[in-house]
């Protein structure tokens, strides 16, 4: 395609027409995933949205109730609070993850000893299952940290962070970030390695210092990677579930219940249709965020 600009008019048209016709075999390649996606995601999704307009509890008879579930859901403080918590938590975690991962990536691509070994160490949290991480940290926060706090006489650490309704979310941010940093780190390392060395040489010749090199060269050239990490991370954190279940179970009280947890509660609580309405609202919100993020980042970076 890129060569078309070099060839004159007649050949150009020919090439373009040929490129437009798609080999039918590609549609065959698409078919399995299209069928599976439709059966496993789209159809259940539509069924779920349909049931959000009923009073079904998952079994037995049901009838259409119109928008009742939506009206109730939007005025339900438990659901509203779970949205506020989830969005606040996701924003903070995205920030923490990306700042830390970026710093680590810069460090791990510079000329230091044991670079490869250190990279391996920092990536380990990514391969451990979230629920296991959560249970291990649960023990640390409930037993080890209070013991350390007592030994050192640090007042606010003496009781478990997880038992403090105002601070439990910080523990969740720490653990989630601990698990999410490696993924972001790998993308940042790849990005940093892709920056050609001659740009830095040119900067050196122009007399740029270390900080200037970071803010004027590295950061602008990394915006695409930052955008990817922020979008992917935010999307993942909105779905937060396993780490919260393992750490606080949504507690203390209802302080750390995420949206996913309230939706799941509809299945074992016999509140199927109501939480389907909640899930539909969440779906719409997620789509809006995705569209907003894409339009915001499209102009500036080559996504």
């Amino acid at each position: 395609m890129t060569t078309t600009t070099a060839t004159p008019t007649g050949g150009d048209r020919l090439v373009r027409r040929r490129a437009r016709r798609v080999e039918p075999v590609y549609y065959l390649f698409l078919l399995p995933s299209l069928v599976l996606f439709t059966l496993a995601i789209t159809v259940p999704g539509i069924i779920g949205i349909f049931f959000s307009f009923t009073n079904s509890i998952g079994i037995g008879d049901w009838e259409l109730v119109g928008l009742t579930n939506y009206v109730a859901a939007l005025s339900d403080p438990a659901i509203v609070q779970s949205y506020l918590f989830t969005f606040g938590f996701s924003l903070v975690t995205v920030l923490v993850v990306n700042v830390v991962a970026f710093g680590l990536a810069v460090g791990l691509t510079s000329r230091i000893r044991m670079k490869v070994g250190l990279r391996a160490v920092f990536v380990i949290p990514m391969v451990v299952s979230g629920i296991i991480i959560a249970y291990v940290f649960n023990f640390l926060f409930s037993n080890s940290l209070p013991a350390a706090g007592q030994a050192l006489g640090i007042g606010f650490l003496e009781t478990s962070l997880l038992a403090n309704p105002d601070l439990a979310w910080t523990a969740i941010v720490v653990v989630t970030a601990w698990q999410a940093i490696p993924g972001a780190l790998l993308i940042y390392i790849a990005g940093l390695l892709a920056i050609p060395g001659d740009v830095y040489e040119a900067a050196d010749i122009d007399g740029a210092g270390r900080t200037q090199r970071l803010t004027r060269i590295t950061l602008p050239l990394m915006t695409g990677y930052v955008a990817i990490n922020v979008i992917l991370g935010f999307k993942n954190f909105l779905n937060a579930y396993d780490i919260i279940v393992g750490l606080t179970g949504g507690g203390p009280g209802t302080a750390t219940r995420s949206i996913a947890m309230t939706i799941i509660s509809g299945f074992n609580g016999g509140d199927y249709a109501y939480q389907m309405a909640n899930a539909t609202i969440f779906f719409v919100v997620a789509v809006l965020i995705a569209v907003a993020q894409l339009t915001m980042t499209r102009g500036r970076s080559a996504l």
Binding site: A78, P165, G250, G251, P252, G253, T254, A255, R257, S265, G266, N268, G269, G270, D271, Y274
Partner: peptide, 12 residues
């Protein structure tokens, strides 16, 4: 009913 998180409330 289970849809009301009464255990969480009791804990709180």
């Amino acid at each position: 009913p289970k849809t009301i998180p009464v255990f969480s409330y009791a804990q709180a």
